[in-house]
Simulated scan of single mutants.
Amino acid sequence: MSNASVSNDHLSSYLKQIRERVGEIVVGQDVVVERTLISLLTSGHLLLEGMPGLAKTLLVNTISKAIHLDFRRVQFTIDLLPSDILGTEILDEKSGGFRTHHGPIFTNLLLADEINRAAPKVQGALLEAMQERKVTLGNQTMSLPTPFLVIATQNPIEQSGTFELPEAQLDRFMLCHRLGYPAAKDEEEILRRNLKLGVQKKDGGAVARTEFDLVTDDAVGTPEDLVAAMEATHDIHVSEVFLKHVVDIVERTRKHPDLELGCSPRAGIALLKASRARALIHGRDYAISEDLFALAEDVILHRIRLSYEALADGKTPQQILQQILEESIS
Score class of each variant (00 low, 15 high):
E132V: 07
R21I: 01
D84Q: 02
S64Y: 00
L149E: 00
G138I: 03
A277H: 01
S39N: 08
A55Q: 04
A310G: 07
Q323L: 12
G50C: 07
I38R: 05
A112W: 00
E34M: 08
H177K: 10
V74K: 04
L272R: 11
F293Q: 12
S143T: 12
C263E: 00
D298Y: 07
R117K: 04
I269R: 05
L54K: 05
L170G: 03
S330F: 09
I249R: 00
F173C: 09
N108M: 04
S328F: 00
E240Y: 13
Q29G: 00
P120N: 04
E34R: 13
V227M: 15
L295H: 00
H45Q: 06
L80K: 12
V220S: 04
G180Y: 10
I236F: 07
R73E: 06
K255W: 11
A208W: 11
I329Q: 15
Q140F: 12
D217H: 14
A4W: 10
N194E: 15
A152P: 05
D313C: 13
T88Y: 12
P147L: 11
S2T: 14
L111A: 10
L37S: 02
G262M: 00
I157N: 10
A294T: 10
F173D: 01
H10W: 08
S95H: 02
K196F: 07
T216K: 10
G124E: 10
D9C: 11
Q75I: 00
Q75V: 04
V299A: 10
I151P: 00
E211Q: 13
L11E: 03
G161L: 02
A229C: 07
G87P: 08
T253R: 00
V247H: 14
G87Y: 00
A4I: 14
D213A: 09
L272E: 12
G198E: 07
S307K: 05
V32Q: 10
V150D: 01
Y181T: 08
K201M: 15
P104K: 02
A206T: 07
A232F: 00
E240A: 14
V246A: 03
P265F: 05
F212R: 13
D248S: 13
I105K: 06
R73G: 05
F71H: 06
Q318C: 01
V135W: 04
S328M: 03
D79T: 02
S307T: 13
L325H: 05
A206K: 12
L165D: 08
K244T: 13
Q154K: 05
G283S: 00
Q140R: 15
D113E: 12
E260I: 14
I329Y: 12
A183P: 10
G44D: 09
N194V: 11
E309C: 02
R278L: 14
G50A: 08
Q318I: 08
F76G: 01
K134S: 09
A287C: 11
T136E: 11
M51G: 05
L191E: 06
R99A: 12
Q159D: 15
G28I: 02
E24S: 15
L191H: 07
A274G: 06
M130Q: 08
D217Q: 14
I90G: 04
H282M: 09
L144I: 05
L271R: 09
E326A: 15
A119C: 03
I85F: 01
H102L: 10
I38N: 02
S160Y: 15
L59N: 09
E260T: 11
G268W: 05
A118Q: 06
S64E: 02
D298W: 04
A208E: 14
R193E: 06
D84C: 01
S160V: 15
A66H: 01
V227I: 15
R266Y: 01
T77K: 04
